[in-house]
Structures are given as structure tokens and as C-alpha cells.
Amino acid sequence: MKVYVEFLGYAAEKVGRRWIWLEVETGCTLGDLFTKHLGSIVGVELSRALAEAFARRELVVAVNGRTVDSLEHVLEDGDRLLVFPIAAGGA
């Protein structure tokens, strides 16, 4: 199955691209996506750093517009992921 991953802010800068389609296996978790799939493209160190930033709540991952809070989250075919540094809005 395929998932679409979009990056914003420093995540986009580090990864070096704004979006990417990834072919993943059924039952793939967000953790697998970071370590296995993203790692093969952007390098293991960077993908691990991104996963750790997510665990520290410095990076937010939204799957189909809903934030997720666990690397155990299971992805589904056609999911759209947005990976962005935490930030906030106001007037």
C-alpha cells in the first residue's frame, strides 16, 4: 500500500523535500515508517532523529488531518501524513 508524507518547516529542510510517496507493507506503523521506510531514503540517522523529535512532542504528525500521539499508530492505504514542527497561532 502507499502513503503520502508531507513535510513543513525544518522537517522539510532536513529531509530536503516537501513531500514523498512511500510504498509500505500492510500493518505498517508510524514507527516503522520513520525507521524502515523513511530511513532508506533520507538516511537512518535523520529518520531516527525525526522519530525522537516526535516522541519528545517537538514534531507533530497528523494523519488525514488528525494529530496522532503514538509511534504504534497503524497506517492505512492512501493515508496522508503531515509532519511539522510544533507551533501555535494567535492574533
Binding site: Y10, L59, A62, R66, L82, A88
Partner: peptide, 23 residues
């Protein structure tokens, strides 16, 4: 703080696109 850099770099503009995505 993880919020310091995004706020300093782009202020509240850093989240227009992501908040759109979050609905």
C-alpha cells in the same frame, strides 16, 4: 523549547498551512 525556533523564525505564520490540514 521546541516552540522557540518556529516562533522566532516565522511567528504565527508558521502554522497557517498546518492548521488548515488539521481542519
Amino acid at each position: 523549547s521546541s516552540l522557540f525556533d518556529p516562533f522566532h523564525r516565522l511567528g504565527t505564520n508558521s502554522i497557517v498551512y498546518s492548521f488548515y490540514t488539521l481542519g
